[in-house]
């Protein structure tokens, strides 16, 4: 199955991004396709490479980034939500790209299922 993923929360206050990440890994493991992961609301903070979690904590920015670079998963950050929160190209972790909300609608159209992670 082809999945689109929407991540609505940042990497620390909520578990949503962790759950989405694990869902993506599990789906890939089972041979499914991930059409795109779209980051909206505070979810755009998952792409901020200035984030420095404590050394004994998982680093979701790096984990997502690796999915983008090593597994070539399309990681898209909403431009409007990102600008509000100061997430711009110069602080964007590798593997992410910034684009418009149209990319979310496209993910809904092109995927068999769009799975939303958030409250």
């Amino acid at each position: 199955m082809k999945f689109g993923i929407l991540v609505n929360e940042g990497p620390f206050t909520h578990q949503a991004s962790d759950s989405a990440y694990r869902f993506v890994l599990a789906a890939l493991e089972k041979g499914h396709e991930i059409y795109r992961v779209f980051f909206y609301h505070d979810g755009v903070n998952n792409a901020n490479k200035l984030s420095e979690p404590q050394s004994d904590d998982r680093d979701l920015v790096k984990l997502w980034s690796a999915l983008g670079t090593e597994r070539e998963i399309d990681l898209v950050v909403c431009v409007a939500a990102a600008l509000r929160r100061g997430v711009k190209d110069d602080i964007l972790a590798e593997g992410f790209r910034i684009s418009g909300l149209g990319q979310l609608i496209e993910a809904g159209v092109e995927s068999d299922r769009l799975v939303v992670f958030g409250d």
Partner: peptide, 14 residues
């Protein structure tokens, strides 16, 4: 922010 998404979906004629 949800309202912004609604307007985009509409613009894409969904």
């Amino acid at each position: 922010e949800c309202l912004e998404t609604i307007l985009i979906a509409a613009a894409f004629e969904q």
